[in-house]
């Protein structure tokens, strides 16, 4: 078990894969970390030496904003828009798509699961 950046404990997967379990680290950054520290692609997390784990941890601490810090930053950015009273903020407040997508249909990710309209006649056949 390896603890990197707080709570994350990636398993016996390859390092480039398991680093992505950290919020804020995707394919690109995971690959960057490995090349920068000279860790070969096929190395698994349980094969890492303590020193390598330490170096990964330090690199992430130094270079990237991950987990809680990143979540807080994103939440702050959204809060700023909402307090400002601009169009994007209003859309965030109402839980509707922010970037001009259609809402006549779809937009279910933002609006949540569809709610049946009471009293609407069903189309028969």
């Amino acid at each position: 078990m390896a603890r990197i950046a707080g709570v994350n404990i990636p398993t016996n997967k390859r390092v480039t894969i398991s680093l992505r379990y950290i919020y804020g680290i995707g394919p690109k950054k995971a690959q960057d970390i490995c090349t920068q520290l000279g860790i070969p692609d096929d190395r698994r997390v349980n094969q890492l030496s303590d020193d390598e784990v330490l170096r990964i941890r330090e690199l992430i601490d130094r270079e990237f904003r991950v987990e809680g810090d990143l979540r807080r930053e994103v939440a702050m950015n959204i809060k700023r828009l909402m307090d400002l009273g601009c169009y994007r903020g209003l859309r965030h407040r109402r839980g509707l798509p922010v970037r001009g997508q259609r809402t006549h249909t779809n937009a279910r990710t933002r609006k949540g699961k569809a709610v049946a309209i009471a009293g609407k006649k069903k189309v028969t056949k």
Partner: peptide, 10 residues
């Protein structure tokens, strides 16, 4: 805070 936004947004 509004600097950089457009007037229409408000």
């Amino acid at each position: 805070n509004m600097v950089g936004h457009k007037f229409g947004e408000f």
